[in-house]
């Protein structure tokens, strides 16, 4: 089973996770920029983070045979902090980078006017840079948040087929699908979606335009949830081809809209020679 995790925050994960993901079939991932738990207080703090997503993290991933791309943006939560909003002015210099495959995560957290401004501005940045957009839907007041998100996308110059609406669930999938956007589902140990509910959604909505991610980060989460969904799909009677569509071809098609996906990597066996993450070849 080949797996592309279209949303995972590897900065918060260990090399053990990379190894386990490779063993489970993960060969590619996208790391969206997001909130780090601790609020940032200056744009420079974002720039160091963006540099890490463009430098050190792809290097770590490559050592485990996994292709790493990223999406960059000012996240919705910190879009409310005036100390952080100058990040919007600097984003164009980052969005030209080779491994940036979308603008994201953008969207709503608390649905404030500042979030409205940041979302609209960053949808336009996606248009300007020929990139699709990864749009997070809020955890609180989700259905209202989805509707407002879809409205802002509709008012933007970014066509819905270049938008991935993420963190969907049973209550939001229908309206999200009707918008014409791609549909993302985050599978978590106890919040968001779980693998059995995911299979039920796939049964009722089909596999087209559906992406499944672990969204693993510094909270309680599991980087192998993509694999669990593949296993649950097979157990429920879906074919290998269905699994490949959801776990590989759909994310490749969506992020491929950027024209910047590069999925060829040497095997990790070749890379482990001289691996600095192994700290001097112990």
């Amino acid at each position: 089973m080949r797996i592309f995790d279209p949303h995972i925050h590897m900065t918060s994960r260990t090399t053990d996770d990379y190894q386990a993901m490779y063993d489970a079939g993960v060969r590619a991932l996208v790391e969206p920029s997001f909130w780090l738990g601790q609020p940032r207080t200056a744009p420079a703090s974002f720039f160091d983070y963006f540099d890490s997503l463009l430098g050190w993290e792809p290097f770590r991933a490559a050592q485990y045979g996994i292709a790493h791309h990223c999406t960059l943006a000012l996240n919705p939560k910190e879009a409310n902090d005036p100390r952080c909003t100058p990040v919007l002015d600097a984003l164009p210099r980052y969005l030209v980078k080779d491994s940036v495959v979308a603008v994201g995560e953008i969207g709503y957290d608390s649905m404030t006017p500042a979030e409205d401004t940041a979302l609209a501005a960053q949808l336009q940045l996606a248009v300007d840079h020929g990139l699709p957009a990864l749009v997070h839907t809020p955890h609180r007041d989700k259905l209202a948040g989805l509707r407002r998100t879809v409205d802002v996308v509709r008012e933007s110059h970014l066509p819905p087929e270049r938008v991935l609406l993420d963190h969907l669930n049973e209550t939001t999938v229908k309206e999200a699908a009707d918008s014409g956007a791609w549909l993302g589902f985050s599978i978590y140990p106890d919040t968001k979606m779980d693998e059995d509910r995911m299979v039920a959604v796939l049964r009722s909505h089909g596999t087209e335009r559906v992406l499944v991610n672990s969204a693993a980060d510094w909270g309680r989460s599991d980087p192998l949830k993509t694999r669990r969904v593949g296993d649950a799909m097979l157990a429920a009677g879906f074919t290998d081809d269905d699994v490949d569509q959801v776990l590989w071809r759909n994310p490749v098609a969506f992020y491929g809209l950027s024209g910047r996906l590069h999925l060829d990597l040497p095997s990790p066996a070749a890379l482990h020679e001289g691996n600095s993450v192994l700290r001097g070849g112990e």
Partner: peptide, 23 residues
């Protein structure tokens, strides 16, 4: 400080236009 000359944007984008091996 955030606006780059056009050749500098080319410098950034060289990998995807020419292939990582030629970057």
């Amino acid at each position: 400080p955030y606006v780059s000359a056009s050749w500098e944007l080319r410098f950034a984008a060289a990998g995807r236009h020419c292939g990582p091996r030629h970057a």
